[in-house]
Design a protein around this nucleic acid. Structure first.
Lengths: 343, 343
DNA sequence: TTGTACGCGTTATCAT
DNA sequence: ATGATAACGCGTACAA
């Protein structure tokens, strides 16, 4: 079947419109950008010409002179993780409402060094939303470049930067208290040291059990994904001193742990309780459903984008706010955790 | 804490480089674009100047003259659906490898009419990957505009377009045969008429059960999401003639059905079998795990992006291939479906 | 091998 | 109220 589709037609330019309406390009430009009003006569002719020619201004040409691309960049660590997916959703919604396009980059593929990716991206966008988990050379360059940037995740504010996200230590503290009240005493935490705030969650847990007789044990995995949860499950669950609750760095790990625990013949939560962080949608559909902590994934994306837009539109002479905006998290208690007899 | 970060510095231009290296801008341009070779002397000076000034060419200015933006657009219906998330992952990987940036748009937010979104997007990209599920006015405009486009999903080739994806009817036929062999006789299909190929899946199911005594029933939901699965579960499962297997249009619906079935006190698969389409990751972590059909989500994204790149780079004088590229699907049999006694 | 000069489509400045 | 024209930063004929 031969191709009959038209080649990309060279779009009408502002010049074409001006000519068709018998006015100057300046007039058309001003009319479009809404600065001024004109004679009824002129307005009608221009409107007509624009409609006839299907004119839309060239974003590149416009960007060259205005210095605005109309794009914002969003760098995600792993789009397959529902936590980040939700973040994208929130950010996307706000961007769209503001008439901004979303330039999406998945940093999972270590192909390109992140720094090079950021440098490339930064020329194509008005601002950037990136993970607070980026390498220091990357964040340093971002600061130095002066590109409007908002960080999501980790709550320690980078010098001169602005961050948005739920607080990991608080979240872990709340989860820890809940588990402590349930009578858990042998607590294992499966951390992911690749994320700085895994340590915060570990601290929060420890703090929650302070003064109790609980024994806390720390593990570490290579990646915050379900497969890793499955991989470490047996060594963790079948040890001499098995945990009565396993807290995972995130829900994906918890999902893997839960599945493998059951595959190993353990009953959840009777034999072992399991909990995670992020409140991903799919934690509701396991049985038992997964206890987790909602980390405001989607809201993080929304707020980050709002703040970025504010920074982009900010008066160049007034200083930009610095620091971290902490969003509320909350424990979602479900069936994967249950009370223990007090020993 | 006051802001100490630098304002966005005006990046070095090719002019600055030329001046610093005591050559002309043309020399720098040719050097960068690799067309020619120069005197050792000149090459060194230029390289040095580029390094010193941290020069990177302005994509907008370059785009104006080359007609290439270096961006590709990807329009997704609902990024929260893991099927589409995987597609994005695949497309993103290929784009990144090709040095292209991904302009992502979530069409869920019906805020902007899709057509306007496409028109806007099309000026910012070299090509577009969109759902075959778009409205006709949208696809018509795309054809007419001549923007290189690849469709994902539905297998009916749009006139003059190019599509990529697994075949729904074949997939449903395979699943249907598997279920028929298991002895299922009261088959309910929970469709989503919003997607054209939901009908294909229904047809495939029907074909699989042709000549059997099975009774097939068709349902419809308003959206292909888990909540809808939960919503319709009771009326479907507690009817006078309850199904012995429920096939859902996709895994999200199946997940909702599965969860609600169990909440209603039904045992899966003993009382009712449940299956879906897409093979989303989280179907593995329910119990029982979800039977599904792998629809090559990630591969769809990869191939679609490859084909788009080919179309973008194609010689303007040779006709572009038209039609549909069908990817292999396969049944993933898991615990949510089990054999029935032959009646 | 290297440089000059024009044009890409737009907005902004300055006249009129 | 409207128009002429200079940027914006780059690639590329064409000239040298």
């Amino acid at each position: 079947m031969p191709d009959t589709s038209p080649r990309r037609r060279k779009a009408a330019t502002i010049h074409d419109v001006a000519q068709a309406a018998s006015v100057s390009t300046a007039t058309v430009s001003k009319f479009i950008n809404g600065g001024q009003r004109f004679t009824r006569e002129v307005e009608e002719r221009v409107t007509q010409a624009i409609r006839d020619l299907g004119y839309r201004s060239n974003p590149l040409a416009r960007g060259m002179i205005t210095g605005r691309t109309g794009n914002v960049g969003l760098v995600i660590l792993d789009i397959l993780n529902p936590h980040f997916t939700s973040l994208v959703k929130g950010a996307s919604r706000v961007a769209m409402r503001a008439g901004l396009n979303l330039l999406f980059a998945d940093a999972t593929e270590g192909q390109t060094p992140v720094l090079a990716m950021l440098q490339d991206l930064s020329r194509r966008v008005d601002g950037l939303i990136v993970s607070a988990r980026l390498s220091e050379i990357a964040t340093d360059w971002l600061q130095h470049s002066g590109v409007p940037t908002v960080y999501y995740g980790g709550q320690q504010s980078l010098a001169g930067g602005y961050g948005v996200g739920a607080d990991s230590k608080t979240a872990a503290l709340m989860l820890g208290r809940y588990l402590r009240d349930q009578g858990h005493r042998r607590v294992h935490y499966v951390g992911f040291s690749g994320a700085r705030w895994s340590a915060d969650r570990w601290q929060g847990l420890q703090q929650a059990f302070e003064g109790s007789e609980a024994a806390l044990t720390l593990h570490d995995v290579a990646a915050p994904v379900a497969e890793e949860g499955e991989r470490v499950a047996s060594s963790l669950l079948l040890s001499a001193q098995p945990p009565d609750v396993v807290v995972a760095y995130n829900d994906l790990l918890a999902l893997g742990l839960l599945g493998q625990a059951q595959a190993l013949g353990l009953r959840v939560p009777e034999d072992v309780s399991i909990a995670g962080f992020d409140n991903i949608l799919y934690g509701r559909y396991t049985s038992p459903a997964l206890t987790t902590v909602d980390m405001a994934s989607e809201l993080t994306g929304e707020v980050a984008m709002q703040r970025l837009i504010e920074r982009i539109q900010a008066d160049p002479d007034t200083p930009l706010p610095t620091g971290h905006e902490t969003l509320a998290s909350r424990v979602i208690a479900r069936g994967s955790t249950a009370a223990r007899r007090m020993a």
